[in-house]
Design a protein around this nucleic acid. Structure first.
Lengths: 143, 143
DNA sequence: AGTTGACCCTATAGGAACTTCAGGGTGTGC
DNA sequence: GCACACCCTGAAGTTCCTATAGGGTCAACT
């Protein structure tokens, strides 16, 4: 099958497929005489797997690790379990961060209830007077 | 004051300050004879404001809009209120997304409770068999 | 006077996961 | 024979910085 068909069954764009190949997530397929990529069922399964991982917001590095583990059928799946546990921890961290953010934003929003003069706006005053915090490092890849 | 001092009071790096100038968030200051940037109290307040907005995960575009509104003291602050409301909505959307993600990941994690053979791992089976979903467009800038 | 070290300057590249664009080749139906 | 959908490569753009290279400035110390 050609790249357009593959992209369609995996619900992504042609460009994304080519990008995954360049990144080493999806192996380079055979080529037709016209130099078109020619995929088989193996590629379909791989790409589906990758897209499912991405739907769960895993990074390419995480997916790469997972694929590497899968390709060693001799071992046990302890590494897989650990990776998923760590990923869940990332999600938890980000949820906590957003929860705090929402709290701060709600409090800020409370400070202006009507459309008043610009220099009386409690929101602008709040943004000007907030204690300047040190930038916090990322604890997760989840924006 | 020089750039190092400004960065320190605003809790960011010197590189970040120069970057904001290039992006048009912070106006270019006067220069000393040695071509050093020379900031005053106005810049301190602006930069603090910007950093506070960033601490609330606003984008540069949002901050730019906010600064533009502030600089028209004649108008009312309805636009400010609207921007903050929309930003809160972004946070809500992302929290809901992450909540669903966490749910899916927890269910996936349930499928493998021990370190077993790779091809028996319920997690890998789950990732292979998940219904491939169309990639969802971003509803928020909050990764 | 010479030199160390902290600070400043510009310009450029990198990171994540793509998307978009420019410029061109291929295959099929009318 | 030509329109049109599809394929190709390579490079640049997106966001918000961070890091690096290669240099200038200034104050203090020897």
């Amino acid at each position: 099958m050609k790249i357009g068909e593959l992209a369609q069954v995996a619900q992504c764009t042609v460009e994304t497929v080519r990008y995954y190949e360049k990144e080493g997530l999806l192996s380079a397929p055979a080529r037709t005489m016209a130099n078109y990529r020619s995929y088989d069922e193996f590629h379909v399964e791989r790409l589906r797997f990758i897209r499912n991982c991405r739907a769960l917001d895993m990074t390419h590095a995480e997916i790469h690790t997972l694929l590497g583990l899968m390709d060693q059928p001799a071992g046990d799946c302890g590494g897989v379990n650990q990776l998923v546990d760590e990923h869940i921890a990332h999600v938890d961290v980000r949820m906590a961060e957003l929860s705090q953010l929402k709290q701060q934003l709600s409090e800020l929003r409370q400070r202006c209830q009507s459309e008043q003069a610009m220099d009386a706006c409690g929101i602008l005053q709040g943004l000007a007077s907030m204690a300047t915090e040190a930038r916090h490092e990322r604890h997760t890849h989840l924006g």
